Simulated assay, not measured.
Amino acid sequence: MDQQTVQGAARQQPDGMVHEGVPYREPALLARELRAPVDRALREGGRVVAVLDDPNRHALEDLLGSAAEAIEWRDPAEVHRVPAFTVATRWARLTRRNPRPEARTTVIAQHLDLPGVDLAHWIRLDAALNVALDGLPVTMLCPCRADADLELLLRVSHPALRVDGQSLPTGTLRDPTELVAEYPPPPPADLGPPVAELAVALDTLPAVRHLVAETAPRAGLDPERTADLVLAVNEIATNSVEHGPGHGRLRLWTRDGLVAEVYDVGRMAVPFPGIVAPPAAGARGRGLWLASELSDVLQVWSDESGTTVRLLAEAGRAG
């Protein structure tokens, strides 16, 4: 492919997702690399959201001047305090809820060092983004400090790299399911003794709903959030009964809101649970999607011992 063809491809703006890694060596160079796509997005009236550390944010603000006031800045520690799949789901929601759906959403989401966030988090996140954002009108730009190892990781998880103002196809993108199989979510953390628990079976589903509704207000959830979580837990418990082994166990914890967990001895082969809505004509798979939409965090772990689905509804968070 000649240089003219590559530049022509870079100027095209597809209707669906653009997911590009942006290797950089210093903030000033990153700012120059980001200027063109940000200018274009703002000129076209698109929504621009940025998650950058302070040096990169200041460099971009200095370069853009007053135009930087139109960017929605997000705190990296706040964005990445939740699991990678949840981050991907939230970017997809933000895109779908764009107040100007006719304009593209542009997200600048830096890969950076954060306490408790390891390299596997970024691999899972980029794999999940390729699934969650597929077909959506969003440009996801992922700045990452350039070194040999990190650039290699960018190449396996991004369809293209943005280098010197050009969008260059990597040709080395790997299947997201394969990446997540190599870098699976960590096992569920031990939350200690639950504040309440109950057997899950067909005849206990009403009691499951009642227990969640009774416990949620004590965890700080308002009536709307309580109703959402009751419905979310009911979807998971019903899945366990109807599509799983037919019985399981519900446990509840009051930690930063209400954590609800359903465990059973069945296996669930869903690499990206709750991230993508099933087809409208489909009769299966809607439970995880609804549970994800109705909670703040959904996590699923499945191995030879069984399947754990954990939901979090945060206290004080709007529905």
Rank of each mutant, 00 (worst) to 15 (best):
L136H: 08
L294H: 05
L231P: 01
D303A: 05
L152I: 11
A41G: 02
P55Y: 03
P37T: 08
S302W: 12
A189R: 15
S292I: 10
T89Q: 13
P271K: 12
P14E: 11
D149N: 15
P14F: 15
R255E: 12
W91M: 06
M140D: 02
P279F: 11
M1V: 14
V233G: 08
T308K: 08
H210M: 05
V241P: 00
A227N: 05
G116L: 14
Q4D: 12
Q110R: 12
R124A: 00
A313P: 02
G287S: 12
G306Y: 09
V309P: 04
R57P: 12
A36L: 00
L198M: 11
V230G: 07
H247N: 05
A120V: 00
E72F: 12
A216Q: 13
L311Y: 11
P273K: 15
P185N: 15
G135I: 15
R96C: 14
I236H: 01
A28R: 07
R97K: 11
A313F: 12
D62Q: 10
P206N: 14
P115S: 09
G45E: 10
D228H: 14
G287N: 11
H158N: 03
G192Y: 13
R93A: 15
L119S: 03
L288Q: 09
P143W: 04
P188N: 13
P278S: 13
G319A: 15
G171F: 01
D75L: 06
A50C: 01
V117L: 10
T177A: 14
L136S: 01
L141K: 11
P159N: 05
L29W: 00
E224G: 03
V309H: 10
R57M: 06
L191I: 13
E44V: 14
R145E: 15
R32G: 07
A36S: 12
D15H: 11
E26H: 04
D175A: 15
R93T: 12
A88D: 04
V309K: 09
A41K: 02
P101H: 15
A196Q: 03
S240A: 11
L133N: 03
L52T: 02
L229H: 07
V138S: 04
L30V: 01
T170E: 10
P245F: 03
G165M: 05
L231K: 09
R74Q: 08
V156S: 00
R317C: 15
A237S: 14
V270R: 13
A189D: 10
T89C: 05
V156W: 01
A120T: 06
N56H: 14
M1F: 08
V300C: 04
D164W: 07
P186W: 12
V241A: 07
H58T: 14
C142G: 02
A318D: 06
E314I: 13
E214M: 08
D147F: 00
D113S: 09
I108N: 03
T172C: 14
D228Q: 06
A280Q: 02
A280V: 09
R40T: 04
D164E: 08
M268Y: 05
D147S: 07
L52V: 00
